[in-house]
Design a protein around this nucleic acid. Structure first.
Length: 423
RNA sequence: GUGGUCGUAGCUCAGCUGGUAGAGCACUCGGUUGUGGUCCGAGAUGUCGCGGGUUCGAGCCCCGUCGAUCACCCCA
């Protein structure tokens, strides 16, 4: 029988790289938690219509990238291609918007898009996202951006930058798009490009071909259509970002892939990732909640691509910190039972402990201790059991000291916490 | 979805103009009896992505297929 392989284009993480993945994900989540966002855990599949109405019929995501199927009850189901629509559905369904506003939630999980895979672009990929719903205020726009920026900085990323723009309110967009369409109509375009433009004229700003870029140089710019209020909000966002020391550039031609964005929109781009350079992006959405049957509340949020952030970290040579490693590795010499009992006792005290299984030779077991990255190791043989004293070895220095078995846990806990303070 | 490149041991790769597979790393054991990271020795490991075809003979040639990768499209 042929070997099974994972389905085409999915991203999956196995040891040791999965440690790196977990570190990246938890760092992103911690940034959201530090800002008061709470977990919202949602299904990975939803009613297809939630996405066609929420994300927008004209988007590529809906038109050709959704995993849609019929369940046994004849319902049309779609694997979630993005997070915001589902969050809005849940907020409405559970009346979360009836309490204090804004509602602040974060999510983390798998998303699905049936695209041609590439490094950094997968059919099943992972995102951490946040949403702040029910408040239209530059303050919250900036907070949302700051959550992402702080997460990236916490990871130690440097080679990324933030681009922002304002897409204006719904009416502004309507006026602008009308003018943009009539401008594009006059351009000498091939059939395919024209079709793309008719679905979303903003796309042409993103075209890689230089002749198109040139044609679009003189196209009307949305920024000039903004109402006084939008303009003022955007100014507030910019000055607040500056005061927070968050570097950014204004990209008046930014294009977002989802239809629902209004007002502030932003994107984090990393310079070492090739074509799939966006490590996160988001923006405000004024009409979405109402569009999905809720009250008329505005919200703002982002999605960060864990897979891409991980690639970015690797590209910058960022390592997983030491404290993710084991505290102790036990090498039993014919003392499997006792070793496991001691390990369990230490583990229940909160220490990270592993041991060598399978009657390995001392040399091999010490090698395993080394590979595990554990901070300390100890050998447990008949001598130790009869004397109740073990030789606790600090792996980096190679030095060891005698510790009684009964004080092993407290000694280790003390040593580990001292290490933490010094590093 | 479109086009280019690639697919040999767990990993990185070598394999000359076709003659039935190799290196380094990793792994296991050992270097006189219980302490790893260096060094030395020994050992295990592959249906050469999969399926067809050409040939006396294919890892090397042809076709298909699956997958990865790069760019486009799009996006996290």
């Amino acid at each position: 029988m042929a070997k099974f392989q994972a389905p085409k284009g999915v991203s999956e993480y196995v040891p040791d790289r999965s440690n790196y993945f977990e570190y990246v994900r938890s760092t992103l989540i911690e940034s959201a938690r530090n800002s008061g966002y709470q977990l919202i855990e949602l299904p990975v599949f939803e009613d297809t219509e939630l996405f066609t109405r929420g994300v927008g019929e004209s988007t590529d995501v809906v038109r050709k990238e959704m995993y849609t199927f019929e369940d046994r009850g004849g319902r049309s189901i779609t694997l979630r291609p993005e997070g915001t629509a589902g969050v809005m559905r849940a907020v409405i369904e559970h009346n979360l918007d009836r309490g204090q506003l804004p509602v602040k939630v974060f999510y983390s999980g798998a998303f699905f898009r049936a695209e041609r895979p590439q490094a950094g672009r997968y059919r099943q990929f992972y995102q951490v996202g946040i949403e702040a719903i029910g408040l239209s205020d530059p303050l919250i726009d900036v907070e949302v951006i700051a959550v992402a920026d702080r997460a990236f900085k916490a990871l130690g990323l440097r080679k990324y930058h933030l681009e922002i723009t304002s897409l204006g309110d719904l009416l502004t967009r309507e006026n602008y798009l009308k003018d943009l369409r009539s401008y594009i109509e006059e351009l000498p375009l091939d059939e395919e490009t024209r079709t793309r433009a008719s679905l979303n004229p903003l796309r042409l700003f993103d075209d890689k071909r230089s002749e198109i870029r040139e044609l679009m140089q003189k196209a009307p710019v949305l920024m000039n259509y903004l109402t006084e209020e939008s303009r003022a909000d955007f100014e507030s966002v910019k000055s607040l970002l500056k005061r927070l020391g968050i570097a950014f550039s204004v990209n008046e031609r930014m294009v977002r892939g989802l239809d629902y964005y209004t007002g502030t929109a932003f994107e984090f781009v990393h310079s070492e990732l090739g074509a799939q350079s966006g490590i996160g992006g988001g923006g405000r959405y004024d009409g979405l909640m109402e569009q999905l049957g809720g009250q008329n509340l505005s919200g703002i949020g982002f999605g960060l691509g864990i897979d891409r952030v991980l690639l970015a970290c690797e590209a910058e040579g960022i390592a997983v910190p030491e404290n993710e490693k084991l505290d102790l590795y036990i090498v039993p010499l014919g003392t499997g039972d006792e070793s496991l009992i001691i390990a369990e006792e230490l583990r229940s005290r909160g220490l990270r402990v592993d041991l060598a299984f399978g009657e390995r030779a001392l040399k091999g077991a010490m090698k395993a201790a080394d590979k595990s990255g554990a901070k300390y190791s100890l050998v447990l043989g008949a001598d130790e059991l009869s004397s109740d004293v073990v030789s606790l070895k600090e792996m980096n220095s190679g030095e060891s000291e005698s510790v009684t078995l009964s004080s092993l846990a407290t000694t280790l806990i003390e040593k580990i916490s001292n290490l933490g303070e010094h590093s």
